[in-house]
Design a protein around this nucleic acid. Structure first.
Lengths: 159, 159
DNA sequence: GGTGAAACTTCTAATAA
DNA sequence: TTATTAGAAGTTTCACC
């Protein structure tokens, strides 16, 4: 697919929708001094181009009782087992992200849990996977940045 | 604040909105065999309770030319500098997440970049922060899970 | 490309059950 | 708590710039 070219208007539309996906197109139109129809067409184009993949709610996992975040580095006995281990990892609930990485670890996961005890259970499941040599856990004491909007701004400035 | 109790209907509403925040309440109502007004009231309550913090677009960063993901572990010269270093990290564009952690590293970051060269520039900025002893980079070769919906299902099953 | 208006759909709040 | 309802608001299409 040819690279999609976004202009300033697209950026501003994305900017408002990143903040709140339910921002009415009429509001966006008013702010950008264009018609609501134009906003609609542009959003549709970005969806069709695959720039906008979807939209999702941001929930307060703390309020839901899941405040514990850990990162787990996984060492494999053998790199050839990567695919198999990833499939097993995919089956473990509360492992929310997994990356195959170069560097210290072979695979790198993020775990979201209720508490220490719960996290321990999840990490044991990781350790139990055949082909996993050992794991190394980093517990998050405090989350500091998580700013999709700022990332978009940085990207737009460069584009 | 008292812990908010979500029932099965709330779960299902969240479930549909997590998939697509712009799902019309009328559609949700039809599927759950309740009225759109009820959906509206429940969503509003969950927003007021702070369970729903907001909503955001999912963009294809690959298509935007930002396919490179790295995790960077940061070692500090002195733990007392954590706050200062975090503030500096916050100022670096393309560092999208930072966690204070126990375990191997003092601080742990996620970096989103265009390519290796770009990532190198960002990591140099991390290294240059006063109080940072050294950093250790893990490059993501492949992202494997990232499923908010499955996490929600796991949480709902437990609640 | 964009607009503006029409037709259609959805939201939202008040009322009633 | 939920349903109904009706007016307000938003979306989406399209003929025309």
């Amino acid at each position: 697919m040819a690279k999609f070219k976004l202009d300033e208007t697209d950026h501003q539309i994305l900017d408002m929708l990143i903040e709140n996906t339910r921002t009415p197109f009429t509001d966006i139109a008013k702010k950008l001094l264009i018609s609501a129809g134009t906003v609609h067409v542009r959003v549709k184009k970005m969806e069709e181009a695959g720039i906008i993949i979807g939209s999702s709610l941001t929930l307060d996992y703390q309020k839901l009782g899941y405040a514990f975040i850990a990162y787990v580095g996984v060492f494999l006995k053998n790199t050839s087992q990567t695919k198999f281990v990833l499939e097993r990892i995919n089956e473990i609930p509360f492992v929310t992200v997994a990356h195959v990485t170069t560097g210290k670890f072979n695979v790198f996961c993020k775990v979201r849990a209720r508490n220490t005890q719960h996290a321990k259970e999840i990490i044991f499941q990781l350790d139990d996977i055949e082909g996993v040599y050992r794991t190394e856990t980093m517990i998050s004491l405090e989350e500091s940045i998580n700013d999709k909007k700022r990332l978009m701004h940085s990207i737009f400035k460069e584009l």
